[in-house]
């Protein structure tokens, strides 16, 4: 049995990489990959944690009297997460597709005009458009 610390460190590294991916990339698809890494870090954490005896860290010292959940929560949670991640990616890709159709690119920097502090911000874009035409 490996020490619990190993998976935890790995999970941290994965989470860090995921966060970095989300923050550093401007390409929507690459950002999504970062997100996947983040979710899998969580998965790793869950599965690693479920190797502990019933009661988790809190019960480590107490040998007896712990109630075990028959549903093996860590693992089942991981399966839920995988499902969620799949759904997430499904929605995300649909949006990315929409983005690509609208702007011809999947760079996030291409769509900033809604941000109030962005250079391309206009208060009432539709009116502005109508006036421009």
């Amino acid at each position: 049995m490996i020490h619990l610390l190993g998976p935890l460190v790995l999970a941290s590294v994965l989470a860090g990489l995921g966060v970095y991916g989300i923050l550093a990339r401007r390409n929507a698809v690459l950002v999504l990959i970062g997100a996947e890494l983040l979710l899998n870090a969580a998965n790793l954490l869950l599965v690693a944690a479920s190797t502990l005896p019933a009661g988790g860290l809190a019960a480590l010292g107490q040998a007896t009297g712990q109630v075990q959940d028959p549903l093996i929560p860590g693992q089942s949670m991981a399966i839920f997460v995988i499902t969620i991640a799949a759904a997430e990616i499904g929605v995300a890709l649909a949006i990315v597709l929409l983005l690509f159709r609208a702007r011809g690119t999947v760079e996030l920097t291409a769509v900033q005009e809604l941000g109030e502090a962005s250079a391309t911000y206009t208060e009432t874009p539709q009116t502005a458009k109508a006036n421009g035409q």
């Binding site: 920097t109 941000g115 911000y121």
Partner: peptide, 16 residues
């Protein structure tokens, strides 16, 4: 308001 750059990943950064 200066934080509202419109860049989606910047908003995620704020979450982190």
């Amino acid at each position: 308001r200066l934080a509202q750059t419109g860049l989606a990943s910047a908003y995620a950064a704020w979450v982190f």
